[in-house]
């Protein structure tokens, strides 16, 4: 197995899928000549040229729409948002058009498109560049929502997303592009959408984490193990929609305690949804109220200490685990 950064794993996935299927093309701001604002598309334009790797004007609504139309007519666009914050400009096309086309055409027009880019906070980029939008997009039927947390997941899930016949919201994390991990080699490595992954096995408490909070949860688990001899299981749903609730419920049935760590704001978050579903499916297995660690209900501040205070952290996750374990 090769050891790759998440950035390079995504790049490999794009390259392999462009080679595999002539209908796949990558479109977005700075994806071609500039090699990608975060270098995820590095080298692709030089290798494949203007047809397959397309720089756009700064016109998010416009190029999202071009992607939707192209997908309706049989192509498989991968639309990069420089960050998901800018997707809000394009959300009319994503929500009103991509998500609904199959349904309102009575099943006639599928929209096999991937919207991807970095989601959530970065490094002190403040209010308009730090939003985690998974709950927003997951609320709309007709979209799949994917959030990888490792290099292998990034590659395997992006390849699956490109091959999927539905619109897929693929949410990366800028802070994580440089994280390295082992990635299975070969063009055939894919990870099916809708499957959670148990990132660490444990018996006493479950943490459901995604994207940036997965490494935080793993660190928290190690510390709790060392300090309290409490064994924490970390479940990464990887796909937010469709959600692999069975794996989460299975874990909670084993541990009887659940902490959800997430980067989005607390109110009406994906964590709130998981909380409901676990309550619905595993109420009789809970030994404590479910706890969430989410981002504070505030636009993201700039100052380093305030930003840290707003975001989930290892310490906050440990505190929540102690709470549900009555420690």
């Amino acid at each position: 197995m090769a050891v790759l950064t998440i950035r390079d794993a995504l790049n490999e996935a794009l390259r392999e899928e462009i080679l595999r299927d002539e209908n796949v093309f990558v479109m977005g701001e700075e994806v071609a000549e500039y090699d990608g604002a975060y270098k995820v598309t590095r080298g692709l334009w030089k290798e494949f040229g203007d047809k397959r790797v397309v720089d756009t004007p700064i016109t998010e609504l416009g190029f999202a729409a071009v992607g939707v139309g192209a997908a309706m007519a049989g192509l498989r666009p991968v639309i990069e948002f420089m960050t998901w914050n800018f997707s809000i400009l394009a959300s009319d096309q994503i929500i009103n058009h991509a998500a609904k086309m199959l349904y309102m055409s009575g099943g006639q027009f599928k929209v096999p498109i991937v919207f991807r880019g970095p989601n959530g906070s970065a490094f002190q980029v403040s209010s308009q560049h730090s939003q985690a939008l998974e709950a927003f997009y997951a609320n709309f039927p007709g979209l799949k929502v994917v959030m990888p947390s490792t290099a292998a997941d990034a590659k395997g899930l992006l390849k699956s997303s490109i091959r999927d016949d539905n619109p897929v919201i693929f949410l990366e994390q800028e802070r994580m592009y440089g994280l390295k991990g082992e990635v299975p080699e070969g063009d055939d490595f894919i990870i099916p959408l809708g499957l959670a992954d148990i990132k660490r096995e444990g018996t006493d408490c479950t943490i459901v984490a995604r994207s940036m909070t997965v490494p935080l949860a793993l660190q928290a688990a190690e510390k709790i193990q060392a300090e309290f001899d409490v064994s924490v299981e970390v479940v990464d749903p990887r796909t937010i929609k469709p959600l692999d609730i069975d794996t989460i419920v299975g874990s909670v049935q084993k541990t009887n305690r659940l902490v959800i760590a997430e980067e989005s704001h607390e109110f009406a978050s994906v964590g709130a949804e998981i909380t409901y579903q676990v309550m619905d499916r595993a109420f009789d297995h809970l030994d404590a109220p479910i706890k969430r660690v989410s981002t504070a209900e505030t636009p993201m501040p700039y100052a380093k200490n305030l930003e840290a205070a707003a975001l989930p952290s290892v310490e906050k996750i440990i505190a929540a685990v102690k709470d549900v374990c009555y420690l």
Binding site: G62, A65, V66, G67, G69, M72, L75
Partner: peptide
């Protein structure tokens, strides 16, 4: 109008 532009893109 945007979706139609995408149809033209595919054509």
């Amino acid at each position: 109008i945007g979706v139609g532009t995408g149809l033209g893109y595919a054509a």
